[in-house]
C-alpha cells in the first residue's frame, strides 16, 4: 500500500511542477522512476516509452498508467494516473473561474489581444517542425497539404481525416513489416 501512495505523490509532484506538457514531464518521470526510486531499469523504461509514445491519448497519462501498472498493478496504475492529472484539474479550475470573472476587464482584454496571435504562431511552428522530423519528401508532401486543404478549406471533420490517415498508415506499416520479414528470410537463406 505504501508504494501506491509513493506512486501517487511522485506523479503528483511531476504534474504540479512541470511546465511544457507531456514531453517535458517525461524527463522528470525518468529522473524519479529510474534514477531516484530505481523502480524500473533504464533500458526497459525507454523500450516501453517508445511504444507508449506511439499510442493515442494523453502521453503523460499513458506513461503514468504504464509505470504504475508495472510497479504496483491496477491500484498503482490508477494512483499514478490520478497523481498526474489532479494538479492540472485543480489549477485549471481555479484559473478558469478567475479568468471568466475578469475576462471583460480592459486590462485583461489588452493583454490577451497581444497573446492570441502568438498562440497561432505557437501552433503553426510545431506542425512545421513535425513535417521536418517526419522527413516529408516532395512526393509525400501531398499528405499534409491534402490534410490542411480538406480541413481548412473544405471543412471536412478532422476526425474523418485522421481515420483515413490511420487506415493508410496501417497499410504502410503492414507492408513495411512484410518487407522486413522478406529481407530477413533472404538473409537467412544462402
Amino acid at each position: 500500500m505504501k508504494i501506491v501512495f509513493q506512486l501517487f505523490f511522485t506523479f503528483f509532484k511531476i504534474g504540479a511542477f512541470t511546465l511544457g506538457g507531456g514531453y517535458a514531464m517525461l524527463s522528470m518521470v525518468e529522473k524519479a522512476v529510474v534514477d531516484k526510486k530505481q523502480w524500473i531499469p533504464s533500458d526497459e523504461f525507454w523500450d516501453m516509452i517508445a511504444i507508449v509514445q506511439s499510442l493515442p491519448g494523453v502521453f503523460a497519462v499513458n506513461t503514468a498508467l504504464y509505470v504504475g501498472h508495472r510497479i504496483a498493478g491496477r491500484k498503482g496504475a490508477v494512483a499514478a494516473m490520478l497523481g498526474a492529472i489532479i494538479p492540472s484539474i485543480v489549477i485549471i479550475l481555479l484559473l478558469a473561474t478567475i479568468f471568466r470573472e475578469y475576462r471583460d476587464m480592459p486590462v485583461v482584454e489588452r493583454i490577451f489581444k497581444g497573446i492570441r496571435p502568438c498562440v497561432v504562431a505557437l501552433i503553426l511552428a510545431p506542425s512545421l517542425r513535425m513535417i521536418k522530423s517526419a522527413k516529408v519528401t516532395w512526393k509525400t508532401a501531398i499528405i499534409p497539404i491534402a490534410a490542411v486543404f480538406l480541413i481548412w478549406w473544405c471543412k471536412v471533420s478532422p476526425v474523418i481525416v485522421i481515420i483515413a490517415a490511420i487506415a493508410g498508415s496501417l497499410i504502410y506499416a503492414l507492408v513495411m513489416e512484410r518487407k522486413m520479414k522478406q529481407t530477413a528470410k533472404k538473409e537467412a537463406e544462402p
Partner: peptide
C-alpha cells in the same frame, strides 16, 4: 505523422 502535422497546421 505527416497527416497529423497537416491537422495541426489547419
Amino acid at each position: 505523422k505527416p497527416a497529423i502535422a497537416g491537422l495541426i497546421f489547419a
